[in-house]
């Protein structure tokens, strides 16, 4: 609002004297401390992974990754993620639709239940599946008698991975869909659109970036999960060994360079995830969950 009264311009005060900011020396110290901590805790390990991996040169690294055990580990990790992540995306979409578009009793409790995997140790999650599907397990003894093994096989690895990454997509979608409300879907309904058509043409375009974001986070964790998978896999070399488990095996056999080569591959995937994630945050901030708003 422009007032009729024109005040003389206040004398330009030095930025450091601003009453709503910290003095310059303090800002500089804070930035320096924070950067130093980040270098110690985050940058250093990242650099270490790549320098250790390449200590014996590219050729050795490539040879490690081409070994049959490594190829099988990479394949298992990719297959696991390829099954667990889409299933969790389906769960995320279904739960976000039910929670955001409808009001029902016990909703808050349900949301707590969906978040539960975040406060359960991955090892405990693995233990749960061993108890359920192991040879002495509640369901396992029956399944094994019928020739189906879940623990120490791929289904167990997939289930354990799903448990650990279960809340990721739902947590991204629920706030976005609650914020968007149901007016647009109701408008589509009055225009005669079917349920699937409403979802495909109205809801999905509204949530696609949040969905992609959730899938990205889910995938990063799914490919890197260690604790839960370690418990259920049985670590059969070449069969139920994922990339993170292979890193542990190689490391414990003092094959340090090989372990770090495998680690560097996973770290590179992690960096790709990070780049995509940051790009999405800058580009589509307004379409992602409210908590990511900048």
């Amino acid at each position: 609002m422009a007032d009729a009264l024109v005040l003389p311009a206040p004398p330009a005060a030095p930025a450091s004297a601003s009453p709503v900011s910290e003095p310059a020396w303090m800002r500089c110290t804070l930035i320096a401390v924070v950067l130093a901590m980040l270098v110690i805790f985050l940058f250093a390990p990242l650099v270490a992974v790549f320098t250790e991996a390449l200590r014996e040169g590219w050729r050795a690294a490539a040879a490690t990754l081409a070994s049959p055990d490594a190829v099988s580990a990479i394949r298992l990790t990719l297959i696991t993620a390829a099954i667990a992540v889409p299933l969790n995306a389906v769960f995320g979409i279904a739960s976000a639709w039910a929670i955001a578009k409808f009001d029902f009793r016990g909703k808050a409790f349900l949301i707590t239940l969906i978040d539960l995997p975040f406060s359960v140790s991955p090892v405990v999650a693995g233990l749960c599946f061993v108890l359920l599907f192991g040879s002495q397990g509640l369901v396992g003894s029956w399944l094994i008698a019928h020739g189906v093994s879940i623990v120490f096989a791929m289904p167990g690895i997939i289930l354990a991975t799903m448990f650990v990454t279960f809340p990721f997509v739902a947590r991204e979608l629920v706030p976005v869909m609650i914020e968007q409300g149901r007016a647009e879907e109701e408008a589509a309904l009055t225009l005669g659109a079917s349920g699937w058509r409403i979802f495909r043409t109205v809801t999905l375009p509204n949530i696609r970036w949040a969905l992609l974001y959730g899938v990205l986070l889910c995938n990063a964790r799914a490919m890197g999960e260690f604790g839960a998978v370690a418990v259920v896999s049985g670590k059969i070399r070449g069969e139920t060994t994922t990339m993170p488990l292979m890193i542990e095996m190689l490391y414990n056999e003092y094959l340090t360079v090989a372990a770090f080569t495998m680690a560097a591959l996973l770290a590179a995937l992690g960096l790709v995830t990070l780049t995509l994630k940051s790009f999405m945050e800058w580009r589509y901030a307004d379409l992602l969950a409210a908590s990511h708003r900048r």
Partner: peptide, 12 residues
């Protein structure tokens, strides 16, 4: 970079 621990597998 703050999100690195989310993206980097724990074993790594």
């Amino acid at each position: 970079v703050v999100d690195l621990p989310f993206a980097l597998p724990t074993a790594v």
